[in-house]
Simulated assay, not measured.
Amino acid sequence: MIRVLKTGLYSSIQDLGRHGYQDYGVPYSGVMDIYSASIANIQLGNDAHAAVIEITMTGPTLEFSCETSICISGADISPKINGTSIKLNKPILIKSGDIVSFGKLVSGFRAYLAVLGGFKTENVMNSYSMYQGITKQSTLFKNDELLIDTSLKGLGIKHAAIKVIKRHTTKQIEVFKGPEFYKLPKTQQNILVTQGFTISKENNRMAYQLKEPLTNNLEPIITSSVLPGTVQLTPSGKLIILMRDCQTTGGYPRILQLKEASINILAQKFTGNMIHFNLI
Rank of each mutant, 00 (worst) to 15 (best):
E145Q: 08
E180V: 12
K186Q: 06
K183H: 15
M206E: 09
T150N: 02
A161H: 11
P220V: 13
I173T: 02
I165D: 04
L147Y: 05
Q172V: 07
K177L: 11
I199D: 03
G196H: 02
F176E: 08
N143E: 15
V193L: 10
Q132S: 01
G156W: 01
E219C: 07
Q189T: 13
K186A: 14
E174D: 05
T194H: 11
N203Q: 08
M206Y: 12
I173Y: 09
E145L: 10
H168W: 07
I157K: 10
S138F: 04
L152F: 06
I134G: 00
L218A: 12
A207I: 04
T150H: 02
Q189W: 14
A207V: 12
L155S: 02
A160C: 12
E174P: 00
H159L: 14
K177E: 13
T139V: 10
V175C: 05
P179M: 13
K211W: 09
A207W: 05
K211Y: 06
Q189L: 10
Y208M: 12
L214I: 15
E212K: 04
D144C: 03
F176R: 10
L214W: 12
E174G: 05
E219T: 11
V175T: 11
L210P: 02
I148R: 03
K153A: 12
T170Y: 04
T135C: 00
L192T: 07
A161S: 10
I157H: 05
K211H: 14
T139D: 05
Q195D: 10
R167V: 07
V164C: 10
K166Y: 07
I148T: 04
T215H: 08
G133N: 04
Q195P: 11
T170G: 07
L214Y: 09
T187A: 08
N216P: 09
V193P: 06
P213E: 15
P179H: 07
S151K: 11
I221W: 10
M206T: 14
P220Q: 09
E174K: 10
P220K: 10
M206R: 08
V164N: 02
L210R: 00
I173C: 08
A160G: 15
H168K: 02
F141T: 02
N216G: 14
K186P: 00
K153M: 10
I199W: 02
I134N: 06
G133Q: 00
K142E: 15
F176S: 08
I191F: 05
G156D: 09
N204L: 08
E219D: 14
L210N: 02
T170W: 07
R205C: 03
L214Q: 13
I199G: 00
E219F: 14
L218D: 06
K201M: 11
P185K: 06
I162V: 12
L152K: 03
V175H: 03
R167S: 03
K166R: 12
